[in-house]
Amino acid sequence: MNEKTLAGYCIRCNDQGYLTDLEQWNKEVASEIAQEEGISMTDKHWEVIDYLQDQCRKEVAITIRKVGKSGVVNIKEFYQLFPKGPLKTASKIAGIPKPVSCI
């Protein structure tokens, strides 16, 4: 378990920088993680983050295919929003665990 200071908050995360407690997540923390990942957040980014957190709370395993069918973004847009590995990057910003899916 690591601790990291993000936007002035002391946040618990794993060694890859994924938050281990979604309760500690807030938009300022997310923006700072996004900045580290080279992403400047837009409304569309936040919509995706909302969706991922919602799925995580419902304990649904997230896949690229599901995101593509979510009605929030299609797969092409998802890659445009988070170019370097969309599911991984978006999950990190959303404060949810790293996805384990291969799809």
Binding site: K66, G68, N74, I75, Y79, I103
Partner: peptide, 18 residues
């Protein structure tokens, strides 16, 4: 069950992903 798409949809996914 594992959310692996059929061949035609998989090809669309690949194209969409670049």
């Amino acid at each position: 069950k594992l959310d692996i798409p059929p061949v035609d949809e998989f090809l669309e996914m690949l194209t969409a992903s670049g």
